[in-house]
Design a protein around this nucleic acid. Structure first.
Lengths: 136, 136
DNA sequence: ATAAAACCTGTAGTGACTATAGATTCAAGT
DNA sequence: ACTTGAATCTATAGTCACTACAGGTTTTAT
């Protein structure tokens, strides 16, 4: 018993994507221009709901809008191959691994320098010292 | 044998911060307005070099410009306490940990769904399926 | 004196939204 | 049919931390 037509607010509630973001995706041509009511309000159907779920899920997994655009082109043209999709996904997973590695370096440095600091009142802080030197 | 005065290019080479970024930091009031030559070129001294090192190092550790502004205010007003600085640093380390956790979730999902895909030619991809469903 | 390198200001673009203002339309109740 | 309030509309600007121009001026080296 799924509804046939959604206003933008209903679509937003159904997908968890904010109204402004939905309109933004439309401007970015990630989401088809929906039909309009006589008064000009957007009227969405199941296919928009599906597509917006796809976009949201992909965003949750860290794909950029450009990457999502690529994915959508592949999925739309039904000639896509699993191989292409997998390549994009694996590539994306790699870039996430790099980000994690970078952040872990930051974290360990931060923990190391804060461990050196006793947190007292005197104005000669080992953290400030550590930040003051240029390295790497 | 450190130089007394640097043009913006020399400062850039010395710190690894791009010229445009140095000017941007000046507009953001992270870096003091330096004295100018007669013709209007910026002329930096040791204190600018030190401060720019500090900013760069802090950026490398993931502090936002606002956080760096706070750090600088504490360091400048010589009344800062180690405790304040440490609190900011520990807080920042926590937010980095959160980012890492998020990215790790993304990564494991991506690896899981790409493992399901054999990468062949038929157009029914388990990755696409996984992206099509809304969860969490 | 000239040419090239360095520098100047101001503005606009990036990504992925988010926020606001001010107007219009829709749905529900009387 | 009318009124009210919620929902929606467009257009524009703001966020963060830069980055990239364009078109001009100054400095430095020959």
């Amino acid at each position: 018993m799924t509804k046939e037509h959604y206003g933008i607010g209903a679509l937003s509630r159904a997908t968890g994507v904010k109204i402004e973001t939905i309109r933004y995706y439309e401007r970015q041509e990630l989401l088809d221009n929906p039909p309009r009511t006589e008064g000009g309000h957007r009227s969405y159907g199941q296919e928009h709901l599906k597509r917006l779920f796809f976009i949201r899920r992909s965003r949750q997994l860290g794909f950029s809008l450009d990457e999502i655009r690529e994915l959508l082109v592949m999925v739309d043209g039904d000639s896509y191959t699993c191989g292409q999709i997998k390549a994009l996904t694996v590539e994306h997973a790699k870039s996430i691994r790099e980000k994690i590695t970078d952040l872990e370096k930051m974290e360990s440095t931060l923990l190391r320098i804060s461990a050196q600091c006793k947190g007292g009142k005197f104005p000669d802080c080992p953290i400030v010292d550590a930040l003051s030197y240029f390295q790497r």
